[in-house]
């Protein structure tokens, strides 16, 4: 217990979209506990922001209590309360923010507003030991290529319309499955045998997926086997992303390639990214599967980093930022 007392502990609350997550991290880089409840929309439907918010409200009290209990930490022992301040769905974000504010005020602890995307990058850096990577952030909310320079993550490439996560979610919905659709598409794709031609759109280091979505949906309606379309959709979507990433890697010559975000769990994408990393003498790293999808741990750990470099926010100024870009975040805790 004496050792524990010296540690800085941060409670992290994630509530940007489907997931309500709670976690406690320590400044020695340990995730003491990480628990979540995931809102599931009806098959064929997307997230309804209000329903997601209600789900989070209902899930929050027990989940917060459970995390303290399982981590064997008393609420007063924590040093800061971090929450996902954005980007994400307003109603969902406000649930996490409200709970975090209440806890911070009640426990008299400082509040830390964390950018969710930075959370994906930091939890991946923590679990892989990556130091100066080109980051490929792929999730429902992001498809971006970023590298760090002078206190900011700089975006080198990104999607010009929907994200790769959106692409799979929306396609899955169109063919009658519930979001998130990434795993469904991945499973169906394994049974695909034949390549169905689909449009391939790379613009410099950018990609655009909306044309691909429309075409894939049309192919299914025209009677192509769903498994074949899933297979082709995945091949084209990932090849575009991999090409953009390789172009970026050739441009900035980073020593590491770090894959993170929910879609990082896709084995096919990992295989493709590993190939180009090898090609350009970069070490390939991928976020621990436990933390690839949205989780409290990404907020708790980034909360530690921000808190230790003075990045707290006053309760009255802790307004959520649904469209907060990751390259707008000033980052004092990284060198480069």
């Amino acid at each position: 217990m004496i050792v524990l007392a010296k540690l800085v502990l941060c409670l992290g609350i994630e509530s940007t979209a489907h997931t309500f997550g709670v976690s406690i991290a320590s400044d020695e880089g340990r995730i003491l506990e990480d628990a979540k409840e995931v809102y599931k929309p009806a098959p064929g439907a997307g997230i309804h922001p209000r329903d997601a918010a209600q789900h989070h409200c209902a899930a929050a009290p027990d989940l917060v209590a459970k995390v303290f209990e399982k981590a064997k930490i008393r609420p007063r022992q924590i040093d800061a309360v971090a929450f996902s301040m954005g980007p994400g769905l307003g109603p969902a974000l406000r649930v996490g923010a409200t709970i975090a504010r209440a806890l911070a005020v009640y426990l008299k602890k400082p509040l830390v507003g964390v950018n969710h995307a930075i959370g994906h990058i930091e939890i991946a850096s923590l679990t892989t030991g990556a130091r100066d990577p080109l980051v490929v952030l792929v999730s429902g909310g992001h498809s971006a290529l970023a590298a760090f320079a002078q206190n900011r993550w700089r975006i080198f490439g990104e999607t010009e319309d929907i994200t790769v996560g959106n692409l799979f979610d929306m396609f899955a919905r169109e063919i009658g499955y519930a979001s998130p659709g990434g795993q469904i598409v991945e499973q169906l794709a394994r049974k695909g045998r034949r390549y169905v031609e689909l449009p391939y759109t790379v613009k410099g280091n950018d990609v655009a997926y909306s044309g691909l979505l429309t075409a894939a949906v049309r192919k299914v309606k025209e009677g192509e086997r769903v498994e074949d379309v899933c297979f082709s959709l995945q091949e084209v979507a990932f090849a575009m992303l991999t090409e953009a990433t390789e172009r970026c890697l050739a441009l900035i010559e980073k020593p590491e390639l770090l894959l993170t975000g929910g879609v990082a769990a896709n084995v096919k994408l990992q295989t493709m990214m590993r190939l180009i990393a090898q090609e350009h003498d970069a070490t390939f790293k991928v976020v621990d599967r436990k933390f690839s999808a949205d989780c409290g741990a990404q907020i708790a750990w980034t909360g530690i980093l921000a808190y230790k470099s003075g990045g707290t926010v006053k309760v009255e100024e802790s307004v959520v930022r649904p469209r907060w870009r990751l390259d707008n975040v000033f980052i004092p805790w990284r060198e480069g």
Partner: peptide, 8 residues
Amino acid sequence: KEYRLKEI
């Protein structure tokens, strides 16, 4: 490019 399908 080994990462992409031969057809593509």
